[in-house]
Each structure stands twice: as structure tokens, then as C-alpha cells.
Simulated scan of single mutants.
Amino acid sequence: MIHCEGLVKIFKSDNLEVVALQGLNIEVKNGEMMAIIGNSGSGKSTLLNILGGLDRPSAGQVRVGEWDLLKITDKQLVQYKRKTVGFVWQNNARNLLPFLTALENVETPMMLEGKVDRAYALQLLEWVGLKERVHNKLSQLSGGEQQRVAIAISLANRPSLLLADEPTGSVDSATSDQIMDTFRRLNRELGVTIVIVTHDLSLASKVDRVVAIRDGLTSTEFVRRNPNLDEAASFNLNQVHEEYVVLDRAGRLQIPRNFLEALNIDGKASMEFDGEKILIKPPNSLEGNK
């Protein structure tokens, strides 16, 4: 569904250039539900905005389904945003129209295609657990319920990709669990690919795979070892996930900076192969043993 290789995004302001993504590589399979984690400024939201068609990439490769987002025209971009991708924001004010009911909010994007499918809108609200709240105005809904309306809206035009930017960032843990369970149910029932950007590693037990971004680069992946894990169980990274270093097509490793700093590696490192393992050491480690 998603293929990014050497993805670069540079923001320019006057004489200042900020490199938000500096050669990021990532693959997302069709029907996968995954999370992208990273601290503020890591580039995760920039990646989501590019995948959502809200920002243009500066260089590299980025494909979503049949669309090449580096070469897409403005007219094609409108069709891409209408039909291929759905977006859920952390701030409900960007998702919802407060003077409409939950049902009317879901039906609004359908008007862009000239046909309102009320039966499907009702089905979406039932899927997100709001069957009894379809005629409620937003002021009558809790923050978690509003966010679930937003999820239904993002699926109104049957996109194949759903993007969510910190969807649980402004709710309590119990509501967060409800929202993540909603994403999982829709992922299974509709087969929609879901990418969630978050800084909260505890969400990792709710998805198939986690990719960590540091300094605009894909650095490590955590892959779920037990797909039958009880989703209500408490999260333990050591028991549930295995960490991988990303290897690109040129054979380059992107090693987390904190690992390198712990070994005082900066710029160069010595490397050995013992027939089973590749050992990376500080360049002076061998000299110090002589």
C-alpha cells in the first residue's frame, strides 16, 4: 500500500531551510494496521501529511497504491484525497462540523461525490459504537464519542488508507482503548490499511507493527511476535515485540543515535564479521585492547 524510499522533505522560510525528512524508508502492506512513533520534531507528522496529500515531498520515492505522490498533479491530488485516503486529526475541531448531528457529519463528505449513502453512513456509526447517538449534536457527545464520529467521517468515501495523527492524544486511557479497538475492528471488517502516528509506545500492543522515526529517518521497527495476544493485556515491550534495525536497498543500516552515543561512536566505527554476527565497535576499541 505504501512505499517510501529515500524520502526527503525540506521546508524553506526566507533563507532558512529545515530538513524534516532526510532519506526515510518505509513499507506498509495492504490491510496492515501499524503505528509510527517518535518524539516531537522527529518527522512523523510530516510523513503523515505527505501520505495524506497535504504536503508535497521534496525528493525520493513515495507511492500509495497506484499513486506516485512525487509526480502527482494538483487535479489528481484532489481525487487522491477524496477517494484513496481518509484522515483523522487529534483536534476534533478539524474533523467535525459542530452545528450538525453525528449522521450529518458523516454524510457531508459523501456530498462531494454527489451521492449520499445514508445506509452506509448509519453502518459506519454502528461500527464505531454510536448506533444510538446518530442524531445527537456534537455538544451532546463526549470527546471520545466525537473522535469516533471523526473516524466514521474519514471512512465515508470508502478510502483504502486511513491516517490518524495522535488520535488518542487528548483523551484518557480508557477512551484511548475504545478508540484503538474501533480502529482494529474497522481494519478487520473493512480491510482498510491504517497508519497511526503517535508518541505513545503503549499503543504498540494494539497494532501489527511499530516503526520508530528519529531525526527524520526510519531507525527501528518493532514487529509483533504474537498475533493472538490479548489486546486488553498490559503492554510489555520485551514480551510482545522484537526490535529490528532498518536495512535499505543499498545495504545501509540506520542505527539509533542513542546506541551510537553509548559507545562513543561518531562518524566512523570498526566492523567485524565472525561468521554468525556482525559486530560494530568504536574505531579505537581494537587499539585499546593492544
Results as ranks from 00 to 15, higher is better:
2 I>G: 06
3 H>R: 15
6 G>F: 03
8 V>I: 15
10 I>V: 15
11 F>K: 12
17 E>H: 13
22 Q>G: 13
24 L>I: 09
27 E>Q: 14
28 V>G: 05
29 K>I: 02
34 M>Y: 01
35 A>G: 00
38 G>V: 06
41 G>V: 06
43 G>A: 09
44 K>G: 07
44 K>Q: 07
47 L>Q: 04
50 I>S: 02
53 G>W: 00
60 G>E: 05
61 Q>C: 10
62 V>Q: 08
63 R>K: 15
70 L>R: 14
70 L>C: 14
75 K>S: 13
78 V>A: 07
79 Q>P: 00
80 Y>H: 08
81 K>M: 09
83 K>V: 03
85 V>R: 03
91 N>M: 04
94 R>S: 14
97 L>Q: 13
97 L>T: 14
98 P>F: 09
102 A>Y: 07
103 L>P: 03
105 N>E: 04
108 T>Q: 12
109 P>W: 07
113 E>S: 10
114 G>H: 07
115 K>P: 01
119 A>I: 15
123 Q>E: 14
124 L>R: 06
125 L>F: 03
125 L>I: 04
126 E>N: 10
126 E>V: 03
127 W>F: 09
128 V>F: 06
132 E>T: 11
132 E>Q: 15
133 R>P: 02
135 H>E: 14
137 K>G: 08
139 S>F: 12
143 G>P: 01
144 G>V: 13
145 E>P: 03
147 Q>F: 02
147 Q>I: 06
148 R>E: 08
152 A>T: 02
155 L>C: 08
155 L>Q: 09
160 S>R: 14
162 L>P: 01
164 A>G: 03
164 A>M: 08
169 G>H: 13
170 S>F: 02
175 T>V: 13
184 R>V: 03
185 R>M: 13
186 L>V: 09
186 L>N: 05
193 T>F: 04
194 I>R: 12
198 T>H: 08
199 H>A: 07
199 H>M: 05
205 S>V: 09
208 D>M: 07
211 V>R: 05
212 A>K: 07
225 R>M: 10
231 E>F: 10
239 Q>K: 15
239 Q>D: 15
247 L>V: 11
249 R>H: 10
251 G>S: 10
252 R>Y: 08
256 P>C: 04
256 P>H: 04
258 N>R: 14
260 L>R: 00
261 E>W: 00
262 A>F: 00
264 N>F: 00
264 N>L: 00
266 D>C: 00
267 G>E: 03
270 S>L: 08
273 F>Y: 13
277 K>W: 10
283 P>N: 12
283 P>C: 11
284 N>Q: 11
285 S>Q: 04
287 E>D: 10
289 N>T: 09
290 K>P: 04
